[in-house]
Amino acid sequence: MSHSRTITVTARGDRELVITRRFNAPRQMVFDAHTRPELIKRWMTGPENWTLPVCEIDLRAGGKGRYVWHNTENGADMGMTATYREIDAPHRIVHEEMFDEDWTGGGTEIITTFEDDGETTRMEMVIRCKSKEARDNILKSPMSDGMEQGYARLDRQLAERRAA
């Protein structure tokens, strides 16, 4: 766990998914990159052809956020509305997420914490589902076919590049 930049994704208890990641930057900067739309748009994209043209955030308890990802290849849009519950900058954010096409079984509550660790910042994100059933359904669903197709296409391109 002391490796910098190692990501862990685990299922915890009955209805949680937990993500941890370390960033080689000060906590305020990592917090800003997670909460300022002009910065979020620069990294919360992908896979491959998915961009994030819409990102609006009213960062206060009770405030709303709106994210729309757009696939530049097939024109598809994927929207998500966030509702902020607790903001303790630059340490902790509690918010709820609901995708327009709900694939999470009723939305999720997400608790994000940022801790100083020497020169680095350790992030933990707890994604809490509505029920054990909702969490288990997420675990059973392969990630969207589009995502797998994206990876398959990337694999092909890399193979072609190697062959060339």
Partner: peptide
């Protein structure tokens, strides 16, 4: 799922 999600993230 967890492995796919990890790769995506």
């Amino acid at each position: 799922f967890l492995e796919q999600y990890r790769r995506f993230l």
